[in-house]
Write a protein that binds this DNA or RNA. Sequence first.
DNA 1: GGGGACGCTAAGCGCTCGCTCACCTTCGGC
DNA 2: GCCGAAGGTGAGCGAGCGCTTAGCGTCCCC
Lengths: 207, 207
Amino acid sequence: MSTAKETAGGETSAWGEVTPDAARRLLIAAVEAFAERGYHATTTRDIAGRAGMSPAALYIHYKTKEELLHRISRIGHEKALEILQTAARREGTAAERLADAVSSFVRWHAGGRTTARVVQYELDSLGPDAREEILALRRQCDAEVRGIIEDGIASGEFDVLDVKGTTLAVMSLCIDVARWFNVDGPWTPDEVGALDADLVLRMVGVK
Amino acid sequence: MSTAKETAGGETSAWGEVTPDAARRLLIAAVEAFAERGYHATTTRDIAGRAGMSPAALYIHYKTKEELLHRISRIGHEKALEILQTAARREGTAAERLADAVSSFVRWHAGGRTTARVVQYELDSLGPDAREEILALRRQCDAEVRGIIEDGIASGEFDVLDVKGTTLAVMSLCIDVARWFNVDGPWTPDEVGALDADLVLRMVGVK
DNA sequence: GGGGACGCTAAGCGCTCGCTCACCTTCGGC
DNA sequence: GCCGAAGGTGAGCGAGCGCTTAGCGTCCCC
């Protein structure tokens, strides 16, 4: 549904929906800065500088520094949810859909590590209202994965003791990729995705 | 070895080695503040205030705010390594030792979530030299787990395709507990430890 | 081709940060 | 009973923070 662009690839290609051009450049600069140094260690001067603009330019397009984080977080979570929904709703067995969900979700965390880091680890830097909005999206992500696992149990494909706990463990495996994945490391995002998909199938008792 | 106190329990009980008393109180205050708000969002006035002292008192016991993080990080990593070494070197099959390592490591991350959060997620806030020192400890932790997995493969207990990748996945499962675990949630640290140990055994092909 | 909306900058405001310094207390040793 | 070390405080420094404001160029529209 919606757009049909790259799912797990380019870092900057996913922000096409942000306009005008200057606002998008600032947002991409903010993603990079937040990912490298963290939200609180990043200054508005740093963001504006990366975007090739003066510090004041930021406030033409965004009311506060926090609004930048909020926008990044919401767009990122919406993308993550879209990835999981696509995998959950496709044709195939529960095992196939779970493997698809994990591998594409992991690919997104590895390939778009810069974005994923901000999305997954800077949630607490948001104010209460914004955080609650993002948490709702995160619960939807959990629900998509739990749905697939429940399907697999119902069809007899999976052997799972604790649905909630296993769901959380699957999410852990995917999300933690954003913490350790290194672009210069020994793996490509595809390889990590395939590896983790295999491990997850083992966790739910397939094969 | 060394002390024989609680492994996964009380937050503040593990800092007995820090003296004098005022230095320990400041360090515990720093752990709490860093865990709640992050290193960069925490002020030295906040730390001193939590310890019931004036802002200047901090600099009698620590040269900089970063030295506090460094001390916390080193002691925490040493504790984590000790937990994994104890499990790796005990008697028993590879499966028993792996389950022991995962369950006690997860218990530490869940029960001591405040400390574990700082230890696992504030590494990048350290300067280059301190970070490199901590990374060496982290590599030792990985090596302990990888060792158990290799033992299990050699003895024929485990069926693992990618040793390095599987090791990383096991660590991910344990470490990510510090991100999501909630003291007021539905699980005790013991329950999460047992659940994750079971899932890890499935990942390495036991049962 | 004049005028207003838009996008942006230079300068700087008020504030809080990490950290320092001059000074004060407490206390064990002789 | 005096003395120096150890541990603490109140005040405040210079710097850098998030954000604002006054003003400048560049378009589009009629």
